[in-house]
């Protein structure tokens, strides 16, 4: 394993480069190429950022849960970090999803939080779950046990996501009296292309952030090890 980076093209750098190319392309498409939506007009452009951010959040949580399962299977502490870092980024992207979703609700429905939207409500439950993951992680002493407990709780989220989607749909009569129909569901070719480009840009940004943060965490561990050695040899 080569750990010196320098100007060499490592994975984090390549992901950042891909994001650096895709992001301006996506922004160009969103503001100069794609036409205004027939129903929602200019404001529909929020969709091209809000939905990719939300999907990136889910992708990060999925990656975190997958590595949690792999950790429980193998007991490799490196996988604990690869489970924690995407969860951490997922909460950042998740906060952004909630805020941009709230703005979109204001534009679409005239209110900052629309309880009739199944997507917003599901996301809220799952976001609360991942915040709780952090409470657990921060209140247990670092070490093998924290890794194990975090992994178990992260895996519970895999059960919670479908359960919440179902509950929010079944509970529509409780949350909101009228059935909600999604207006932004059908996209034509240009819209789909723009959307996919924005999604690719957002995902590559997340991958770059993930790899950089993972390297930072590894560096942290190495410094701690060095410190122990330096103090021990005194």
């Amino acid at each position: 394993m080569n750990t010196t980076s320098g100007a060499r093209l490592d994975r984090a750098t390549s992901a950042a480069l891909v994001a650096a190319v895709l992001m301006p392309v996506a922004l160009g498409l969103i503001f100069f190429y794609v036409p205004n939506d027939v129903d929602q007009g200019f404001s529909q452009r929020i969709f091209y950022f809000h939905v990719p951010i939300a999907m990136t959040t889910y992708a990060l949580f999925a990656w975190g849960a997958l590595n949690a399962a792999r950790y429980l299977w193998t007991g490799d502490m490196g996988l604990d970090l690869r489970s924690y870092v995407p969860m951490h980024l997922g909460v950042i992207f998740g906060t952004l999803t909630l805020v941009t979703g709230s703005i979109w609700a204001k534009v679409s429905w005239g209110t900052w939080w629309y309880w009739g939207s199944t997507e917003l409500n599901t996301f809220l439950i799952i976001f609360l779950f991942y915040c709780a993951y952090f409470m657990l992680r921060f209140s247990v002493e670092p070490g093998e046990r924290r890794a194990r407990y975090s992994a178990v709780y992260a895996l519970l989220g895999v059960g919670l996501i479908p359960i919440s989607v179902l509950a929010v749909h079944l509970g529509q009569d409780v949350i909101h009296p009228v059935t909600f129909t999604d207006r932004g569901a059908n996209m034509d070719g240009t819209m789909l292309f723009t959307f996919l480009m924005a999604l690719a840009a957002m995902l590559s940004l997340a991958v770059a952030m993930y790899l950089v943060e993972l390297r930072g965490k590894r560096l942290d561990e190495q410094v701690t090890r060095l410190r122990r050695l330096a103090e021990g040899t005194r």
């Binding site: 609360l128 779950f129 709780a132 519970l156 509950a167 509970g171």
Partner: peptide
């Protein structure tokens, strides 16, 4: 830790 899981439960039960 528990309350996020209680939300879907309560939602289904109330409904």
């Amino acid at each position: 830790l528990f309350l996020p899981f209680a939300i879907p439960l309560v939602l289904g039960a109330v409904s």
